[in-house]
Nucleic acid binder design. Structure first.
Length: 883
RNA sequence: GGCCAUGUAGCUCAGUGGGAGAGCAUUACCUUCACACGGUAGGGGUCACUGGUUCAAACCCAGUCAUGGUCACCA
């Protein structure tokens, strides 16, 4: 070890990669003392293998890393399991886009070849993502890494599907589902995002078949009229009662449809008449069921119109058909009017295409029984959300849950484990591949072509990742996990469903705590998106500022429930702090010569030493409490202010006297304390500044093992020194007020002053006299003397509660200026005094307020009165003296 | 429309029933041998608005306004 090894400026590139290798090589990310120590387990929310990690990912992995490192140092068997998600639609889209660039469709390749290409995309992105996570410093156990489409998870998916199938909780049927025509697949309700769209309400006339005029209906989707099977009115609507039961001609076709009454129709809206299109609208679907109306499907699976539509419309897209229908209606006189209208339209969450309600044969999970379990577990307090407000979101979703459409008409994903016999039509759900029909013995069996929703594998993550459905050691050692950290945007997709699946298959909640991070946004509050070009690449931040700076900054800003607004400059916070730590260590190391480092006993601690130990100890308590209650910002603020403001600004500055002492013993004493404090501080800081602290730790002469596995500092009752803390505050107050006056009077640094201090309290006097050199140094005085006088000519006075300090500025005093300054002081203090007196003159205050509050007001009263008195006296003296 | 947040310094945000805080930005002074990614000292706030509870409210309650999120929609 020697100080020369530390460069002047903190340069994270010099050591971050090396340190990560060091950790990896020594298996420090693996849980220790399994079975003996209480485990602390987290699973990584698996990033999609569709791209690279963004700032949100960085945040969502930085916070778990802090927790894992903290609990690891606390002696828990800490395990963090990483992994990635195959991300069905999203990844398939990436490959389809690549093909499109080559003018190819997936059908040109065929299913097997397409899936093979998708695996290549997966491999590529997986490699990048892994590298990024390592750059960030994630201390996860890479040997346990999983992928949602690996063989183990595929077993888990089959086990889950077949079990639910056998319990009757999975069913297949022809229902109306949300359908993305671009992705050519069904979606779950959660995968549809509603966006407000400027559109029109078209009012269309439908002629009555009895020739007695026409009726007018309003619609936002005129092209769906080819699927109309009825017109509905509200049964209470006096305007239309007489029409119920009559028939109308469906314009542009030769079909006739009935007018029916149903109370889902609002009297107020539009014309009060609704076209009923069961195959393409969820309300109409329900209405159609009530009236036994057979739905007419007008769409092909690619979203174009099918042969149920008139000639000339078949194979048109919905948009094209809309234009054509409107113009035909207008031409033929059926169009009554067009009213501009804004409404929310569902879009595919992956490709933003407008989704169409579409009737098709799909697989569903019956959710009510699962949701009930999940609600019960939450009500019993088995699971807690941080911040708690999200529990509302969780419970209201579960209370209003709808069945989950899990089949996707995609190629990338877990194939549905159901086989059909082509001969006897037998349907077989199976954990293993089926080649022979279980009923008729035929070998003509084919597997269902669809795949499962990608969330059908990730909802098993907390136990499948540990080896389920096999009974593994990991499963018994590490399930249930401890905490989950993820973004609030996937509470429905992922968090709630994991809770449901764990309760069904493991009979336990998957984690006790869920911490929901805010989303990372730019300084204007916008989401970071490729299209806006406002994204910040974590690797870029690491390149400029270092991984620790990024980690510390994000953590500092991670307050519960808030989105995080940042730009590149935000990371200066962490970077400067890292530099500060670096240089503090560097400074102390370069001051070691041949001093012997030893344990300094309590009796050898001076006031200032006790103060810093006390402050450190309080910080340990604050930080531990904050981490354990997921108050990340609070924890970082505590370590920041301790290390920078207390340790560097005061203790280190003050201790330079000891460092420069002629006494070898004193130098040895102070260096030993420094080493002890640094060693402890680095342990305290490690979860937040992992690379830097590990690197510096290795440079300390009093350490011999890795910091990452060193014990976390514990609160120590033997290090409470209230009295010394009070004394140091006294000294700090004197120093600050003298510095203030110096600055106010523009006394240059080069100008040494003479300071006279007057103290009435003997205890204070004792402690000040012990630290006279300290005051001298920090106020840049050539001498500090005690005085009993209450006036010293040619000096400026600054006073506090227990002291007067006279600053001799050697004939530079301008009496008029000084009088004016004192008058301002008086004014300020009188204002404060008035506030205090208002309270003290209030009998109710004295009657009701807490004892301490009253005492405090009285002491404030004395303080302000004294200060005013002193200033006034000084003004008089100044006015009467002959300068 | 329901529900949930948020509104504190120029910006981003902490905070707490008892004298308004941090980081960045800004002003002055300082390149003093750890750090100019630094030091010292400042300036800057009707704590959205209006009521209420309380001896005391930025904090608790109600309402208003504004902003955001989310769910659900009547075509």
């Amino acid at each position: 070890m020697n100080s020369l090894e530390l460069s002047k400026v903190y340069n994270p590139k010099e050591f971050e990669d090396r340190i990560y290798e060091f950790w990896l090589k020594n298996n420090y990310f693996k849980p220790k003392n399994i079975g003996k120590a209480k485990p602390f387990v987290m699973v990584m929310p698996p990033p999609n293998v569709t791209g690279i990690l963004h700032m949100g990912h960085a945040l969502n992995n930085i916070l778990p890393d802090i927790l894992i490192r903290y609990y690891r140092m606390k002696g828990r068997a800490a395990l963090w399991v990483p992994g990635t998600d195959h991300a069905g639609i999203a990844t398939q889209n990436v490959v389809e886009k690549q093909l499109k660039a080559q003018n190819l469709k997936k059908e040109d390749l065929g299913r097997d070849e397409f899936v093979k290409r998708t695996w290549e995309v997966k491999d590529k992105h997986h490699e990048i993502i892994t590298r990024q996570l390592k750059k960030i410093g994630c201390s996860c156990d890479w040997d346990r890494e999983r992928f949602t489409l690996d063989s183990g998870l595929s077993d888990a998916v089959r086990e889950t599907f077949v079990t639910l199938y056998e319990k009757g909780l999975i069913y297949k049927g022809n229902y109306l589902v949300n359908y993305c025509p671009r992705c050519s697949t069904a979606l779950s309700n959660e995968e549809v995002e509603y966006e407000n769209v400027n559109s029109n309400l078209w009012e269309i006339n439908y002629p009555l078949t009895d020739g007695k005029g026409f009726i007018t209906v309003a619609t936002t989707r005129p092209e769906t009229m080819f699927g109309d099977v009825a017109i509905a009115v509200n049964p209470e609507d006096e305007r239309y009662k007489h029409l119920v039961g009559k028939q109308v001609h469906l314009p542009l076709t030769d079909r006739k449809i009935p007018i029916i009454a149903d109370d889902f129709v609002g009297v107020e809206f539009g014309t009060g008449m609704v076209k009923v299109t069961p195959a393409h609208d969820f309300n109409d679907w329900e209405c159609g069921k009530r009236h036994n109306l057979k739905p007419i499907n007008i769409l092909n699976i690619d979203g174009t119109l099918n042969e149920n539509c008139p000639d000339g419309y078949v194979n048109l897209s919905v948009t094209e058909a809309r234009t054509k229908v409107v113009s035909e209606l207008e031409k033929k006189g059926y169009l009554s009017k067009i009213v501009p209208y804004n409404h929310d339209v569902g879009h595919c969450y992956r490709c933003k295409t407008i989704v169409e309600p579409f009737m098709s044969l799909q697989w569903f999970v019956k959710m009510k029984p699962l949701a009930d379990k999940a609600l019960k577990a939450w009500k019993e307090g088995k699971i807690k959300f941080y911040p708690v407000k999200w529990e509302n979101t969780y419970s209201s979703w579960l209370e209003n849950i709808k069945d989950w459409c899990i089949s996707r008409q995609l190629w990338w994903g877990h194939r549905i484990p159901v086989w059909y016999c082509e001969d006897c039509k037998n349907e077989m759900a199976s954990r293993t591949d089926v080649t022979v029909c279980s009923k008729c013995g035929s070998t003509h069996v084919i597997q269902d072509p669809d795949v499962l929703d990608t969330w059908f594998s990730s909802w098993l993550w907390p136990f499948s990742i540990l080896g389920w459905p096999n009974k593994t050691d990991d499963l018994s050692n590490f399930f249930p996990t401890s905490s989950l950290v993820t973004g609030y945007d996937i509470i429905f997709f992922w968090v709630s469903r994991m809770i449901m699946s764990s309760l069904v298959f493991m009979d336990k909640v998957p984690f006790q705590d869920v911490y929901l991070t805010g989303l990372v946004r730019d300084k204007l509050g916008r989401k970071m998106a490729k299209s806006l070009g406002n994204g910040i690449d974590p690797l870029n931040v690491i390149d400029i500022y270092g991984a620790d700076a990024m980690k510390f900054t994000l953590c500092y800003m991670a307050t519960q429930g808030q989105d995080i607004l940042i730009d590149m400059d935000s990371f200066k916070l962490g970077s400067r702090f890292a530099n500060k730590i670096w240089n503090a260590v560097r400074f102390i190391l370069m001051n070691i010569n041949d001093e012997k480092i030893h344990t300094v006993g309590k009796k050898d601690l001076k006031t200032l030493d006790k103060w810093i130990y006390h402050t450190f100890n309080e910080t340990v308590l604050k930080v531990s409490n904050a981490i354990e209650s997921y108050k990340f910002s609070e924890a970082t603020q505590a370590v920041y202010s301790f290390f920078w403001n207390d340790f560097c600004d005061w203790y280190l500055e003050a201790s330079k006297i000891s460092l420069n002492s002629d006494s070898k013993d004193e130098r040895s004493r102070i260096i030993s304390i420094f080493m002890d404090l640094l060693e402890k501080s680095l342990r305290l800081l490690h979860p937040f500044m992992s690379f830097l602290t590990e690197e510096l730790y290795s440079k300390l002469p009093n350490t011999d093992s890795a910091l990452i596995i060193a014990p976390y500092p514990e609160y120590d009752k033997k290090l409470i020194f209230e009295q010394e803390v009070h004394q140091v505050h006294q000294i700090q107050e004197i120093i600050k007020s003298v510095r203030n006056i110096r600055s106010e009077l523009n006394i240059k640094i080069s100008e040494k002053i003479v300071l006279y201090i007057r103290l009435s309290d003997e205890n204070v006097k004792k402690i000040v006299s012990e630290n006279i050199d300290l005051i001298k140094n920090l106020t840049n005085s050539e001498s500090v003397l005690f005085t009993d006088s209450n006036f010293i000519p040619n000096t400026v006075l600054c006073s506090g509660l227990n002291y007067d300090a006279f600053i001799d500025i050697k004939g530079l005093l301008d009496p008029l200026k000084e009088i004016s300054r004192l008058e301002q002081e008086i004014e300020k203090n009188e204002k404060s005094l008035k506030q205090v007196m208002d309270k003290l003159n209030n009998d109710k205050f004295k009657l009701n307020a807490k004892r301490e509050a009253i005492d405090k007001e009285y002491s404030k009263k004395t303080e302000f009165e004294n200060l005013i008195l002193k200033s006034q006296r000084l003004i008089n003296l100044l006015k009467n003296s002959q300068y």
